[in-house]
């Protein structure tokens, strides 16, 4: 565990979480959620949980982003809040 690296990633994690909930465009919010997932994947590799890191990269960032994009294309892209 590398402490300065850890702190930087955690701060960016909170920033991306807040931005993805703030953005009105749902496709943009999904993309920023993908950034969040890759950041947390980086955090887990740094904390020594490599198996969790690559599962998160494949399943959390990859598959759930695809699911969300599919749903947004079948419904509406704009959100009221």
């Amino acid at each position: 565990m590398i402490v300065p690296f850890d702190i930087i990633i955690l701060i960016f994690l909170v920033i991306t979480a807040l931005i993805s909930l703030r953005v009105r465009d749902l496709l943009g919010a999904t993309m920023i959620l993908g950034v969040y997932s890759f950041l947390i994947c980086l955090l887990w590799a740094e904390m020594g949980a490599v198996d969790v890191a690559f599962t998160e990269a494949a399943v959390g960032a990859g598959v759930s982003t695809v699911f969300m994009i599919a749903t947004i294309y079948h419904t509406r892209r704009h959100s009221s809040d």
Binding site: S20, L21, L26, A29, T30, L33, M68, T71, I72, T75, S79, S80, D81
Partner: peptide
């Protein structure tokens, strides 16, 4: 949040 997708992001 009012939007269901936003709830799921949460």
């Amino acid at each position: 949040k009012n939007n269901l997708i936003k709830k799921l992001i949460g």
